[in-house]
Amino acid sequence: MNVDLTKPKVPTQAPKWLGTYGKYLWPKLTAYLNKSNKIIRADEYLIQQYCSAYDIYRQAYEDLQKHGIQQKVYKTSLSPVDGSVVSRDFQGFKKNPAYNMMSDSLGRLNTIGKQLGLSPQARSKLMELAGPEEDKKSVAESMKEFFKS
């Protein structure tokens, strides 16, 4: 089967529906992945999920930077007569909900990243799964190197 190596395996143009940060990451990620012989067109949905999770991660991170990791909680008491504020009592702090969004997105990025071979451990496992021809060639080459020294 002849494969055109000049044609990208996954599109380098980001889907229009992706958010700003996802669109920014897409061409960088696809350029890297298109160089791999392990990626196929069917993996495009993983790249979409990865870029979408990255977009959510960045938005949540910005919210944390703007509003802090925790937020003050107040209990407001209203007048039964006219509905005006009688008192506003400090109750403590609550975790910014953006923290959970950031954490969830980071988990998704790690999971999908492993599937795409974006971590050292995942790349190592992908190398172990290489086809028999590649294994024989690399073993033969390594044996030549071993006996030359």
Score class of each variant (00 low, 15 high):
Val3Ile: 13
Leu5Gln: 03
Pro8Tyr: 04
Thr12Gly: 12
Thr12Lys: 13
Ala14Ile: 00
Gly22Tyr: 08
Lys23Pro: 05
Tyr24Cys: 12
Pro27Met: 01
Pro27Val: 02
Leu29Gly: 10
Thr30His: 03
Ala31Cys: 07
Tyr32Ser: 11
Asn37Gly: 07
Lys38Pro: 04
Ile39Arg: 00
Ile39Thr: 00
Ile40Leu: 03
Arg41Tyr: 06
Tyr45Lys: 14
Tyr45Asn: 14
Leu46His: 09
Ile47Asp: 01
Cys51Lys: 06
Ser52Cys: 14
Asp55Glu: 10
Asp55Asn: 11
Tyr57Pro: 09
Leu64Glu: 12
Lys66Pro: 11
Lys72Gln: 15
Val73Lys: 07
Lys75Glu: 10
Leu78Val: 04
Leu78Phe: 08
Ser79Tyr: 03
Gly83Cys: 09
Val85Ser: 05
Arg88Asp: 09
Asp89Pro: 03
Phe90Ser: 07
Lys95Asp: 12
Asn96Phe: 08
Asn100Lys: 15
Met102Ser: 09
Leu106Met: 08
Arg108Thr: 15
Gly113Ser: 05
Lys114His: 09
Gln115Ala: 07
Gln115Tyr: 13
Gly117Ala: 06
Gln121Ser: 13
Gln121Asp: 12
Glu128Asp: 08
Gly131Trp: 00
Pro132Val: 15
Lys136Leu: 15
Lys137Val: 05
Ser142Phe: 05
Met143Asp: 02
Phe146Cys: 05
Lys148Arg: 11
